[in-house]
Amino acid sequence: MRQELHGMPDRPSAAARVFVILMFAAFVAPFVPLVVASFSFRWHWPDLLPTRWLWNVRDETPFPVGWDYLLSPVSRLGSAFANTVAIGLVVAALALMTGVPAAYVLARYDFRAKGVAEFFLLLPIIVPQVSIGIGMLLLFMRVGLFRTYPGIVLAHLVPALPYAIRILTAMFQNLDPGYEEVARTLGADRLARLRHVTLPLIAAGLATAGLFAFLISTNIFLLTFLISGGRIATLPTMLFSHIGSGGPLDATTAGLVLIVSVPGLLFLFIADRITGSGLSLATAPAGSRAKEDR
């Protein structure tokens, strides 16, 4: 990185360090009591730590509790997890399939309605999801998509696709058209160019866009909640019903919060491997780069 080459003399000030540490505590420390709570069995007011733990009571309770409950088939956590991942994967695939051609056009062509198209793509991010969700619910009831997996997948596409298109557009803008021109002068036909030049060059961008679509899908609550009609559970809808019914330091809810964070954690690991940068989560650059063509 550039910063390391031209080392600036000024290090962060003491105040900045304290601030960073405080923030770190505020955003990471809350995971600690959740881990403790998830292993607790009895944690009465006003104890600072549980008095009985999961492993103390395994043989005494007639049915599994805490993690044992969550990981047993009774909790249906497994199916919610599988639903979340499967829906996320399908959403990612569909977002790429429909997003790549659109992004290519937006990045490479100048046309009169381009501003309109770009504004239209922003709308799903701006318009409240409840507004879309309830209308969609009524629409889906009519066409038989209510309470179905395809219905949920389609609902998730609404927020996921615009984000994917933004990332993909930036990717195509950063891809120098010169590479394809060179390949043409070297005798590569359309298919060969796609296979040997374009695809390898955009692979990382495709993966990033797909990963984002996956992440957005796994985080959606309301649209799933409305379209599933309570029949298909994902991790967020499952967590929603547990928070709504449990007490403050309920072991099952705490465990569930941790489980629900797993897809995001996976996202971070994979995203870092793809881009190799510490800030890969940053969304696509807002301003589009000037084209160098001609």
Partner: peptide, 17 residues
């Protein structure tokens, strides 16, 4: 098309894949 013209071209940028 260019791929059939039997040309070699070097651009301003090296554009190595």
């Amino acid at each position: 098309p260019p791929e059939k013209r039997r040309i070699g071209m070097v651009f301003q940028q090296p554009l190595l894949f």
